[in-house]
């Protein structure tokens, strides 16, 4: 680490922070994955977490996941709210006994010294109604700022976790703002260079935030989205039905992953519709339930696959 050039240091550049976390968890033995190639609301939706959290097999993985929260867009005007941001996700199954220490060491690796800063584990029970999932854990605070979420999954996609996986989610922009000492997300130094060579977070994402805010709140094609939701829901069911080997015996499933993609799709489309404000309070609940039903059916299929531990 000492050999790192300044522009690669986690406190100097956004990408340096990501690279440091990746190195740290790679060194621990995680597989370092790349982001899932679909729109998701959080790193948890990546099948490497949602589905891999289920079943008896050991699984340690880490990855960056771009996360989309259409409703959180602020046309680039809010210093810390974004409709697209990055999460760094770590999933360790079974949760190792020293997982808290591992987490604290990862903070140390990115320059957060626990003798200088006040690091706290504050109760935060996690529940995802759309994923049929819940767990217990904390928000991790550094000097009063929430920098990560820490969850012991108890249930995912309606299936009890056995064994339990530990999930760590780092809010990368916040963490970077903290270690870089920056108050506005767009001011983050992205590449760690100075002067003309410097690329800021704003250089990369400000225009996107403005454009997507317009899209999410004003122009997204509602009709198409309603249609897409229905199609994704139907396709998910179709793939789930078709995936059972030998039809009705329901012992082995062969298409859990493609079916789950459609569940992710439905979830994101719902978020887009929600951002347009076209879903009423009562309907909202029923949409959430429909996605949850898909997630549960996918979880049920997954535990009948090889990676899900069925074979």
């Amino acid at each position: 680490m000492d050999a790192l050039p300044p522009h690669m240091r986690p406190e100097r550049s956004f990408q340096g922070l990501i690279l440091t976390l990746q190195r740290y968890w790679a060194d621990y033995g995680c597989v370092i994955l790349q982001p899932y190639d679909m729109e998701v609301g959080a790193g948890t939706f990546h099948p490497a977490t949602t589905l891999r959290a289920l079943g008896p097999k050991r699984w340690n993985a880490a990855y960056v996941q771009p996360s989309r929260r259409p409703k959180d867009g602020r046309y680039g005007e809010n210093p810390n709210r974004l409709q697209h941001y990055y999460q760094f996700q770590v999933i360790l199954k079974p949760s190792p006994p020293d997982i808290q220490e591992l987490y604290l060491k990862s903070l140390a690796a990115i320059g957060v010294d626990s003798h200088l800063h006040d690091i706290r584990f504050v109760e935060d029970d996690w529940e995802s109604p759309t994923l049929g999932a819940w767990g217990l854990g904390w928000e991790c605070w550094c000097d009063g700022m929430e920098v990560s979420q820490f969850t012991y999954f108890q249930q995912v996609a309606g299936v009890e976790c056995a064994p339990v996986a530990g999930e760590l989610t780092y809010g990368l922009e916040r963490l970077a703002m903290y270690v870089q000492g920056v108050d506005r997300v767009y001011d983050l130094n992205f590449n760690g260079r100075d002067g003309a060579e410097k690329v800021s977070y704003g250089d990369v994402f400000l225009q996107a935030e403005q454009e997507y805010s317009r899209h999410n709140f004003e122009h997204s094609d509602i009709e198409m989205l309603f249609e897409q939701f229905k199609m994704a829901e139907q396709a998910c069911r179709k793939y789930l039905d078709a995936g059972w080997k030998n039809g009705s015996s329901r012992k082995e499933h062969l298409m859990a992953l493609p079916a789950y993609d459609q569940c992710i799709k439905a979830s994101h489309v719902f978020n887009l519709l929600d951002a347009r404000g076209v879903i009423s309070v009562t309907e909202r609940q029923s949409y959430i339930m429909r996605v949850r039903e898909l997630a549960k059916a996918c979880g049920e299929a997954w535990v009948h696959t090889e990676a899900g531990g069925a074979l």
Partner: peptide
């Protein structure tokens, strides 16, 4: 309350 670790299986 919650379960954790290897034994939670």
């Amino acid at each position: 309350s919650m379960r954790w670790g290897e034994r939670s299986a």
